[in-house]
Design a binder for these strands. Structure first.
Lengths: 388, 388
DNA sequence: CTTGATAACTCAAGCATGTTGAGTTAATCG
DNA sequence: CGATTAACTCAACATGCTTGAGTTATCAAG
């Protein structure tokens, strides 16, 4: 029950059905409400096939009937919508010092979220902690029907050049986390890094609703980028794509790694130099509200490197939008977005845009955890033959 | 018969078969030679299903038997390989002043390539020219069985901020090229930009053989990037992903667009300042062999911006390799590759790498044209349910 | 108010394709 | 040389989609 096997797989009747169910579900989600004939037209399936699948989905409570469409000739089409409470997903974020868990429903609404401290990051101990959080979540939501679990772990995965001793969970190097948790939870498990997960959270219930090609600039400890292309994460060879914190950008006449200028750590350092210690997002929001000079200066200095990063992302990925979010107060995110100078010479400059090029996404310390669950929700809507 | 409809489509028996054929073909290509049972194991299909498909492929001459596997217990497995001459693809590159065409076989070998001058870039005229080139190609290769045609056109597509008046084919703005050529040629047609097409050429028969996640830095007029993630092109919202020429990079203390420092145009300008006019790749190769100072200096100056670009690509995409190619002589490409300083702090630095991080790809003015045909060849090996 | 057009939907038969399990064949191993 | 192993074939079977005829509910036109 592990995910990422990645090899494209052959189709048979059973897998076709599973694929078609997801095609139908994704149409229902995209449309909000929709009738069978319309799904059939847009999916290339016969109305009969769609009818059969709809009957299945109804009996599993994944969708519900919601009236009939009137105003046109012919038999009024019975409309269907997602039933948000029809299925749920568990999201877990593992950090060196704490464990976060959340439960989302199909509609992307948060039903549960919790933090527990983590004394020991050894895989066995983490597994126990995850199991007990799962139990608490299920005790508080007895009707939750878990489709699977998403796990967020500190990247980059495997041994790479970006190792910083101490900052990672070294005992995990020989463990295959997906298998470990899948066996422990007895659920399908997806593992992703924080930025990718957070990007998915925006798609399931956030600024990326309705988008399928976008990038999410995630403020974590450093800075990460989650890229979604045609509804699927661009993960790279080892799942380490989007390490945007390390790219060289201009800042005040020098070339620096992006996250040394634009990140939580960077603002903490800047404020620390003035003797101010920020612990939480609230502290930052407070200082921002007070127009604390060192913070304003730091924000001003993010404009240049951030603009460069935006230019890079837009030109390399041609996304529908770039979303900023994560561990940074909304007010600061908005300020940074306002400060970005969007180059006119960019593939993103088009006369027919109907959406801003930069958006603010979900922020706060649960962002990645919610994203972990969102990975599973998104999967429920992603047709599966021929790709993960 | 247009490609890029993009919406995931429902599966039925017929589409499953088509998908499975491509799964089988891709396994045969990947393995070089392989038996039915092994394909079955790796694809999740039954041996019987694979046998049936193999029988089809044999009767269509797409594969051929090539002996039996010996040395193991049990009935020796009959092995199959691709028949390179089993199918062919037409590639066409449209430039403002000329039309290039090529025919590739399934093995990626070039059977035909031709250039004709283009007096008029009006769609009707271009279509006529394409048709007559197709006729010549078929006359010289009467046994060619065309699967489809790939078209390369100057990007970016649609109206964007990167328009440079005159450099584009403005009469094309209201035309849907894929439909136009599909109707004219009566073949399935794929349209891509030059960098993306060139990237595919490397995969079909070049430096990216066996890779499925890589980036191709393409020297055209400017500089483009073709990104392949899990065997599929990352095209972006409007097919304009990979416009790497416009990203800001450091060069000699300044921040410049990458292609102002690293591109064909850039080297021409640098040499032009010394009174030398380079017309062709041969001129450049010649100057390089002569160690012409202005060229050496230009090459030295590419190292810094190119290194930045490589760092950006590696950290954003986590590819198996980055390939440099296009309109630049091999000797210059090699020199540039040697000059790139690969950061140790990168997701690409891993102990278990068995491939260089930078490779030289196909170069020359036909690169993109061959890539156009390669798009079609690649498609023949790409399972199709649930994605373009 | 009737009649026809239209479109969604259902039913049942038909069909393509994959699966299963019982043989068959041809190698290696002991 | 017999046992074992593994690839392969055959035929019955299962699944899930399609097709085409028939039903129902609405709108539009006379």
């Amino acid at each position: 029950m592990i995910v990422r096997p990645l090899e494209t797989v052959g189709a048979n009747a059973e897998r076709s059905r599973s694929h078609n169910r997801q095609v139908v579900l994704s149409r229902v989600r995209a449309a909000g409400q929709i009738g069978r004939a319309e799904i059939a037209r847009s999916s290339g399936l016969s109305t009969q096939a769609v009818s059969n699948i709809i009957a299945d989905l109804l009996s599993e409570d994944l969708i519900v009937e919601c009236g009939r469409r009137a105003g046109v000739r012919g038999l009024p089409a019975v409309q269907y919508t997602l039933n948000p409470e029809g299925a749920h997903a568990l999201g877990v974020e593992i950090r060196p010092d704490a464990l976060f868990a959340a439960v989302l429903n199909l509609g992307g609404e948060t039903l549960f979220s919790r933090r527990v401290a983590l004394a020991d990051t050894h895989p066995d101990h983490v597994t126990d902690a995850v199991l007990s959080l799962r139990d608490i979540a299920l005790a508080e939501n007895p009707d939750a029907h878990l489709l699977g679990a998403g796990m967020v772990m500190p990247g980059p995965f495997g041994a790479t050049g970006i190792r910083e001793s101490g900052s990672e969970l070294s005992a995990w190097d020989d463990v295959e986390p997906a298998r470990l948790f899948s066996d422990a939870l007895n659920l399908p498990v997806v593992v992703e890094n924080d930025a990718n997960a957070a990007a998915m959270a925006e798609r399931v219930n956030g600024a990326a609703r309705g988008l399928d090609t976008y990038a999410f600039l995630y403020f974590g400890t450093g800075l990460g980028l989650g890229v979604v292309n045609e509804g699927r994460l661009v993960a790279g060879t080892h799942g380490n794509a989007g390490e945007i914190g390390h790219i060289p950008v201009p800042s005040d006449g020098a070339i620096v790694p992006l996250e040394s200028a634009v990140s939580r750590l960077s603002v903490q350092r800047a404020l620390g130099n003035t003797g101010v210690n920020v612990e939480s997002g609230e502290d930052l929001a407070q200082l921002y509200a007070e127009e604390y000079p060192a913070l304003s200066q730091w924000l001003d200095r993010t404009a240049e490197p951030l603009s460069a990063a935006v230019a890079i992302i837009e030109n390399l990925f041609d996304p529908q939008a770039i979303i900023l979010g994560g561990a940074m107060p909304d007010s600061l995110l908005d300020h940074m977005i306002a400060g970005v100078s969007l180059p006119d010479r960019s593939v993103a400059t088009r006369p027919d845009r109907e959406r801003p090029r930069l958006l603010r996404g979900a922020s706060g310390r649960m962002t990645a955890t919610l994203g972990a669950a969102a990975l599973v929700i998104n999967q429920a809507f992603t047709p599966m033959i021929a790709a993960r």
